[in-house]
Write a protein that binds this DNA or RNA. Sequence first.
DNA 1: GGCCTTATCAAACGTTTGTTTAACTTTGCG
DNA 2: CGCAAAGTTAAACAAACGTTTGATAAGGCC
Lengths: 210, 210
Amino acid sequence: MEMSEKQLHILAVAESLFASKGYEGTSVRDIAQAAEVNVAMISYYFGSKEKLLQSLIMERMRWAGLMLEELSQNKTMGPWDKMDVIIDFYVDRMLKNRDYHTILSRQMSLAQNEELTKILVDIKRRNSEMIFQIINEGKEKGIFKDVDNELTIGTVIGTISQTSMSRPFYCSLLNIDRDDEETYYKLIEPRLKKHLKSLLRAYLSLGASE
Amino acid sequence: MEMSEKQLHILAVAESLFASKGYEGTSVRDIAQAAEVNVAMISYYFGSKEKLLQSLIMERMRWAGLMLEELSQNKTMGPWDKMDVIIDFYVDRMLKNRDYHTILSRQMSLAQNEELTKILVDIKRRNSEMIFQIINEGKEKGIFKDVDNELTIGTVIGTISQTSMSRPFYCSLLNIDRDDEETYYKLIEPRLKKHLKSLLRAYLSLGASE
DNA sequence: GGCCTTATCAAACGTTTGTTTAACTTTGCG
DNA sequence: CGCAAAGTTAAACAAACGTTTGATAAGGCC
């Protein structure tokens, strides 16, 4: 479980390659070369290519999940403010760890890896549960109108995902050089936050009509 | 360009396999076996595996794009109704051709295939342009408030994509058997339409507050 | 029938794949 | 030091990969 600097370096390199070329599209030799280690080291450290992917996901998982819990139990903040915090949180997380999230969402849409899929579903469920709590709290207080909880999550995550996964498209829409990742994410981040907040504010205050 | 029944059959089989196992995760032998043709036929008909993917995309492309054009120039329908029609249209299209859209969105997030990416971006641009027209028409008539056009597209497509790409997650949320695709999509389709219509109705009538 | 084009096939091609081996070096501890 | 454990390497492994080959069959046209 505890990893050396070298192992973490390999994971970081693999993460970047998996994100840009896909898991199947990346060979262990690609990873070894980019990480400047011998091919055999990957088997030596991780056992196999697939276990390397699992190690990568497990390692990145440790960094998530905390803060949402305390937010859902926060008593002083109102539902509107909590919603804003959540949006900032999700946008920051998903854009900062976009390689990781790209890999996750690709892996999730692949019908294989039964075991891994279950783990991912559980993580997402746990995070979602807390957003539900906040929405329901707002509903009970009469502040939020009735909305589709599950699809509201889908909208938030889907909108953010979309800007990452279809970056070439949005670069084209916004007249940004396709290769200038930096500029793109600097521009899209505040816009995403503003858009999602307005969207949810409108939706939660008007509710699902008719 | 014109394809025989057999070629279309191979494309259909490949589409299904690419969607569930990924492009790189599917071998030409997989395709040949599932389509019950000899491996050599794939090179013979399409030239290569990559050209098969391109043929698949080109072939599916021909079925799209029409109806949006006439809608954007329709004079009798009001902006609200047009928006509803668009949402029905997108949900129907993307769920019906979910394998195709899954492949597209995975391919778009892969940094390779420069040429193919450009083609995909152009298609998406053309479709988006027409939605922009409708939104702007609503704005000019004073019916829609000011919103983020680009990210509104992202929300619509992203929400739908999300339900397809992360199906295992939403199956878990909605207590549906992960393997029962039929039931899932039958349930999610009307819900998606209702959710997106309410969402956009609220957003477009209140606008981007701050 | 003769002939050209198209279709189909099993077999083989040369690479690349993920993984293992066996020899070697480095490290850490008594 | 001495020596076992851990780290590192080039080379080799079988399997799978996308593609090509050369042979054979079928169909249309003169």
